[in-house]
C-alpha cells in the first residue's frame, strides 16, 4: 500500500518536471522560462522530501531548506536584471 502511493506520487513529480522543461524550451519570453525554473525548483524540493522519507535520514531535508532559500534569491536576481538595476 505504502509503496504504491510513493510510486504514484513519484510519477506525478517526474511528469511535473517534464512540463516545466517543456515550458522552459518553448517559452517565448524570459519570464516564461523563469516561471518554468521556479516550478521545477518547488517540485525538486518535494522530491528531496520523498527521498529523505524513503532512505529514513532527516539530514537530507537540510539540503531542501538551503535550496529553497537560494532559489528565492535566484528569482529575485533575474527579476532585478530584467528591470534594469542590479
Amino acid at each position: 500500500m505504502g509503496n504504491i502511493v510513493i510510486y504514484i506520487s513519484i510519477t506525478m513529480l517526474i511528469l511535473t518536471l517534464l512540463a516545466g522543461l517543456i515550458r522552459f524550451v518553448k517559452g517565448p519570453s524570459i519570464v516564461d522560462r523563469v516561471v518554468g525554473f521556479d516550478s521545477m525548483t518547488i517540485t525538486s524540493l518535494v522530491m528531496i522530501g520523498v527521498i529523505a522519507y524513503l532512505s529514513n535520514r532527516a539530514i537530507y531535508l537540510d539540503v531542501a531548506v538551503v535550496y529553497g532559500l537560494l532559489s528565492f534569491l535566484g528569482v529575485i536576481i533575474v527579476a532585478k536584471y530584467i528591470q534594469g538595476g542590479l
Binding site: 502511493v5 511535473t16 516545466g20 515550458r23 516550478s39
Partner: peptide, 30 residues
C-alpha cells in the same frame, strides 16, 4: 495528503502548459 499534494503540483504543471499568456501562467504555475 501526499497524493493530494502531488496531484495539485501536476495541475499546476498542466496550467503552465495550457494558459495563453505570461500573467495567467504565473497565476497557475507558481
Amino acid at each position: 495528503f501526499l497524493l493530494i499534494g502531488s496531484f495539485s503540483l501536476m495541475t499546476a504543471a498542466v496550467g503552465l502548459l495550457r494558459m495563453p499568456d505570461v500573467y495567467n501562467r504565473v497565476q497557475t504555475g507558481t
